[in-house]
Design a binder for these strands. Sequence first.
DNA 1: AATGAGGTCAACCGCGTATGA
DNA 2: TTCATACGCGGTTGACCTCAT
Length: 263
Amino acid sequence: MGRPPCCDKVGIKKGPWTPEEDIILVSYIQQHGPGNWRAVPTNTGLMRCSKSCRLRWTNYLRPGIKRGSFTPHEEGMIIHLQALLGNKWAAIATYLPQRTDNDIKNYWNTHLKKKLKKIQSGLEPQMPPHPTTSYHHLASSENSSVYASSAENISRLLQGWMRSSPNNVDFGKTVPSHESQWQKIEEGMANDHDLERMLVFEHQTSNVAVACDKSSCDSSQKGSDSSVCKIDNGNPPLSFLEKWLLDESAAQVEGAMELPPIF
DNA sequence: AATGAGGTCAACCGCGTATGA
DNA sequence: TTCATACGCGGTTGACCTCAT
């Protein structure tokens, strides 16, 4: 193949986005909706490559993004889903519509991986307090930097625009129809102690390679990794997973130490 | 107060996949 | 069917921040 990188053109700007660039991008998307990213730099005059525009939108400017600390419930869901799906961050993000795949990936790599490691080596009898990072404070506190505030404001503005918009555009992030179910799970689910138990549970079962009921997988959906069903964004073949998590939620994590039926 | 180590996260890179001519 | 192009994803990087000394 050898397709040249899209960003090696002369004059393409890299690095952090400025509030001005954000505003240009957001107002363009307000008018045209997300998509056709190739045309965005041309039509907006932004000296950014299409990839960079898409990334900025999906990871930062898209309305509905929740910033700040992950709740124990969210942590639990990520741990569950990671154990089942592997590092399929986009698929996992489908079930946490307020979080981006990048956020989830970062959180996994910086927080959860370490927690699991500690538990694995028996160094952590108690879960530490829920981590709150300075960056989270940056994004949410009154001491936020000017830029964090402005980006947040842009996002808020856009949320307001979305609510008032009669024909909402598809913002490029599929929200699963069972979102409300997940919210229920989050509401009913674990505190830190429960999370600790779940981490132990995931550790105990982490070597189980089966991530789905293969017989229920359409053969065309099987990716190169035969142990994991390919997730069709927006229509994931995960009913068993949903059921398991929902059942678990109903049991208030009481059964978290028991292996789910698929194991 | 200075500084070095470690942590966090936004953004980039490169590859695989989807799509259309 | 083949090829070119655009998109999307996961891994990685590097700037910036906090904290301990």
